[in-house]
Design a protein around this nucleic acid. Structure first.
Lengths: 228, 228
DNA sequence: CCTGTTTATAAACGCATGTTTAAATCTGCT
DNA sequence: AGCAGATTTAAACATGCGTTTATAAACAGG
């Protein structure tokens, strides 16, 4: 006893899909708060009440968008991993390039995902927890393993996790504070080759840091360099 | 022929001051967009129309708040500089600690300034340019000089500026993406000693990186490590 | 004391938001 | 054909915002 005939079902599905697609675009551009249902429905050629009908509320719509782009993102490009072969150093370099590519050149691969993630980091929504669990944590953990490998440690320890934050923050800064960076130094990369250059600069910087910290273990008690 | 009698003058000034103070607090908490005039006036025990009367508009009020906290911030704690003595490395360590202190422990020193700056970086307002010119650029340039000193260079070059961005991004990440860091690793420091620990970790990391890059000049052409 | 200017306040304006209602339309089944 | 249920739509609702207006109060000078 299926709900309705195929023809209508098709129309409904098409409308739902249109709404979802329009919503994804607008949410990506403006973020959850600033995106308006009217703008979305205008783009989808649908009535505002359709949102309530199909998704219950603005929150529901956003959640659906989130889920759809999640599973779309899953099957797309796998993030950089150690398993692909190559030295840990080269893997880290590729990882940094990958992150920077997504953060700065959002047009590549899955632009909607990149933009929505950026918004989610600026002002978290109720989807934050799922976002972290499904998308961010696996990504983060792979970097932790890469760092542990670069540092020659058998397992991921607290230092690796911290360095992981350092690196991600360093990269995302060029996106989050784009307007500041642009005004205070060489402009933020806008082409693939420029991004590659920056990625290499960052990779050199980070590898230098990690290698220099390779020897130290757990508690280096650093603060005591006051003229020995 | 001064405009009015002292008693009235005093009241008016007091009201203006109350508004300014309340506005600073609310802007600091919510940022420019989300802060509402009604909330500000409620806190200042003033009428909403008073904002138009004294400051012309919400923008005008924000601009006044910005100017007032600027000159307040000028005379307060001078940022860390090379001139204070000590090795460049130690100066850099202190600089990082100083930034982290302001970013994470906003209650210290000038909380309003720190918070408003954080908001300004997230979503810039029309005051952005003045903000950069008056506050951010001098701060940034001092870091550039420190880095140049650490790297033993005679003048600030493009690499120094980039490293500067790296370091600032690395530090601010713990504030901007606090909620992410909290969920993915050791929680973001909340006490002075914790902040000091993190600052030392970051300083060690950064110094390692800078020292390792000390030898290289201008164009290291890094990308060519593909199995020699 | 009256008068005109400055200051203060309450109320309304115009707009935009997410949500909801209630009526209209369409569809499939009997 | 006709009915019942699903879908669509336009309109209204409730709320919040920054801004504006019109009126009342406080004050200064003639």
């Amino acid at each position: 006893m299926f709900k309705s005939a195929p023809s209508r079902e098709h129309d409904a599905e098409a409308r739902r899909e249109r709404l979802l697609k329009a919503a994804a675009a607008v949410f990506a551009k403006d973020g959850f708060e600033k995106a308006s249902l009217r703008a979305i429905c205008l783009k989808a050629k649908a009535n505002v009440a359709a949102v309530k009908y199909y998704f219950g509320s603005k929150d529901g719509l956003y959640r659906e968008v989130f889920l759809s782009i999640c599973q779309e993102s899953m099957k797309e490009d796998a993030p950089v991993t150690l398993a692909e072969g190559g030295s840990p150093e080269e893997t880290l370099r590729r990882w940094i390039h990958y992150l920077l590519d997504h953060a700065l050149l959002k047009r590549t691969k899955n632009p909607v995902m990149s933009q929505i993630m950026a918004h989610e980091m600026r002002e978290p929504t109720p989807c934050l927890n799922e976002f972290i669990k499904l998308i961010f944590r696996p990504f983060h953990q792979e970097l932790e393993r890469i760092i542990a490998a670069v540092m020659g440690r058998r397992a991921v320890d607290e230092d690796c996790v911290l360095y992981c934050h350092h690196i991600i923050g360093l990269c995302l800064h060029y996106d989050h504070c784009r307007v500041f960076v642009d005004r205070l130094g060489p402009p933020v990369p806008k082409t693939e080759t420029e991004v590659l250059r920056l990625a290499d600069n960052i990779a050199d910087f980070v590898l230098g840091a990690l290698v220099s910290r390779r020897a130290t273990k757990s508690k280096p008690a650093s603060r005591s360099k006051k003229k020995p």
